[in-house]
């Protein structure tokens, strides 16, 4: 996704927009942490396999193996989540599975072609930590805004502050405000550089 009309570099923000399916569901700290970990593991597995598999396999085969690898990692994450909290698994398994098919993970599955692409791919793997952190923080912020408190236990979210933030609309509003703030900061930084 292009974050504005082409004036702001779209890299990290484009990926954040691609994370929207997870951010929309991340409305509590426990869900945010679960989805953040699931995304990070799938993203890292996909990126690492696309980087490390031999180029002679060809791009389609590397993509297929990387995507399968990411799916296997998501599967193991879901099993671990089920052991940890069966109720959390029942609530979140769909989004954990969907994390494999989010745009950042699918892009990470594509084998980088040139040397500069490979360097960018290594850099983007590091961004995965940031995206996972963002997903968890979004959950905590939305839970706080919606209920007035943050709980680490799934299903223990009570109270009512601004319930809209627990709903998809609240996630979209937060993403919009964050993207607008990011644009202002980038503009200010560029203004001070020139």
């Amino acid at each position: 996704m292009t974050i504005d009309d082409g004036r702001v570099p779209a890299g990290p923000l484009a990926s954040i927009a691609g994370l929207a399916p997870l951010l929309v569901f991340s409305n509590s700290l426990s869900l945010g942490v679960a989805l953040g970990i699931a995304f990070f593991l799938a993203y890292s597995a996909a990126g690492a396999m696309a980087l490390l598999l031999p180029a002679r396999l060809g791009r389609p085969a590397v993509f297929a193996f990387s995507l399968t690898g990411a799916a296997v990692v998501a599967s193991l994450t879901a099993s671990a989540l089920r052991l940890f909290d069966p109720f959390l698994f029942e609530a979140a398994y769909g989004r954990v599975f969907l994390s494999v098919f989010t745009l950042p993970v699918l892009r990470a599955c594509v084998m980088p072609e040139t040397v500069s692409d490979r360097e960018r791919a290594i850099e983007s793997l590091l961004w995965g930590v940031g995206y996972a952190f963002l997903t968890a923080v979004t959950g905590a912020v939305r839970q706080f805004l919606a209920t007035g408190a943050v709980s680490t236990r799934f299903g223990a979210e009570h109270g009512s502050l601004l319930p809209i933030f627990a709903q998809p609309a609240g996630a979209f509003i937060l993403i919009a405000l964050a993207a607008a703030a990011f644009k202002v900061v980038i503009k200010a930084v560029r203004g001070s550089e020139s």
């Binding site: 609309a169 609240g170 979209f172 993403i175 919009a176 405000l177 993207a179 607008a180 644009k183 202002v184």
Partner: peptide, 15 residues
């Protein structure tokens, strides 16, 4: 200006 592009798209989606 800061809301042009994606922020506006997400705000519209929110509504």
């Amino acid at each position: 200006e800061p809301f042009r592009g994606a922020p506006l798209r997400f705000l519209s989606a929110a509504l």
